[in-house]
Design a protein around this nucleic acid. Structure first.
Ligand code: MN
Ligand code: MN
Ligand code: MN
Ligand code: MN
Lengths: 219, 219
DNA sequence: AATAAATTTTAGACAAATCTAAATTTATTC
DNA sequence: GAATAAATTTAGATTTGTCTAAAATTTATT
């Protein structure tokens, strides 16, 4: 099924607002999309007729299975494009959202999958949010970025936030890879850089920028 | 000025149809965009009110200076995205047009310029059409692709069609660069490969694929 | 020059997406 | 348990882009 950009924006908004599986309100979507409550009601009728939401007048609504599946496709596109912009085109992570809000509506499954491949199948976007794979599966956030570990906490590297070639070069040089065990020995408040011990041996310093891109399963 | 995707499609269509500076007809645009003549007339009123076309009822129309400038921005985007798709994401040159027809409407000057930089400022798209630079200037086709030279013709390499890293690697290895003089010694009809003499010395074979991507100023 | 044919424009309608204002339903408060 | 407030839906309009059919204009052909 193909959807208009407007429909996709509503689907995405509802998805984000129902995180916990609860019902979503008309006003919440209106506020989120900076539109009127009346417009939301109009669109809900349409999404209901297209069988993407369960909706009863005045009672609230939520995406059904098909609706969630659709939302994940849009979110996948949004976050892959953000990764491309930051990673490949060197945009700052704070200037990509608007552009990705346009790019997420480009219709071509092949494009998205090729982009994913080109980017090296990143698990998280530049803001740390998980990127659904081509089956709509997202890494649950049982992992945290290294940057969020406290002193003396330890874990194992489980994913790369956004594998640019520059990042991969750095990791190769420092011999860091998926599965590497590490423990935080010190955090310098000046620049948030961390001193970490790797595989109980080597001790070295990691920038905050790098720490944000290393995802960890705590131990 | 910002324009809708529909407006941009009309502007681009008119641009292509007036190549020689002549007036364009309603039916020509209708055929080109697979729409009705009535729709074209409606849109022309709008483009006239936005001062992009000169148009007199029943007499035909053409883009004015501002209209052409706008058209070149859209064409620049279309051809850069095509280059990206073929070059970076490994699409075939015959499967990128539809996707570029969507991508050309993404609004962000910075995105286009960064994409151009990332691609290495290609002069021609994967179909051999010239890509306008950020000032709207296009390489006039006084140069031809090497693939179009006949036997015994000679010239100097003046531009790369689409500088992918794979192409650059090949050129570096063979020591071919901008300014290199060459003459076509032989063309094998079997695969269109060419035997060329470089700087009056080295003799070697070049595939048709490569020849299409080397642009030449004839001598 | 008159008529026929082709082209173009206008008239009127429709779907998508939005809005404001009024009506309806649900939630809160006394 | 009314009365009031808040949230939601409906009614009616508007803009954009499209369509078909009819009218107007230009071009071609007797
Ligand atoms: Mn969007
Ligand atoms: Mn993001
Ligand atoms: Mn287009
Ligand atoms: Mn092209």
């Amino acid at each position: 099924m193909l959807f208009t950009a407007a429909e996709e924006n509503y689907i995405k908004s509802i998805f984000h607002l129902q995180e916990d599986g609860s019902l979503v309100s008309t006003n919440a979507v209106a506020a989120n999309l900076h539109t009127s409550a009346a417009s939301v009601t109009d669109m809900l009728k349409k999404l209901k007729s297209k069988k993407l939401v369960s909706y009863e007048k005045y009672k609230g609504f939520k995406l059904n299975t098909e609706g969630k599946k659709t939302a994940l496709i849009i979110i996948r596109k949004h976050r892959l494009w953000e990764s491309f912009l930051v990673n490949t085109l060197q945009f700052g992570w704070d200037e990509v959202h608007e552009i990705a809000d346009q790019l997420e509506h480009i219709q071509s499954k092949k494009l998205v999958d090729k982009l994913d491949e080109f980017l090296g199948y990143p698990k998280f976007d530049p803001h740390g949010d998980p990127i659904p794979d081509s089956n709509g599966k997202m890494h649950e956030q049982i992992q945290t970025s290294l940057a969020e570990l406290a002193i003396h906490e330890s874990g194992e590297i489980s994913a790369l936030g956004n594998p640019s070639s520059a990042l991969l070069e750095l990791l190769q040089h420092k011999q860091i890879q998926i599965g590497t065990n590490l423990i935080v020995e010190k955090i310098f408040s000046f620049d948030q850089s961390m001193e970490i011990k790797m595989n109980n041996e080597l001790l070295f310093t990691i920038s905050h920028e790098l720490a944000k891109n290393l995802f960890i399963k705590k131990r």
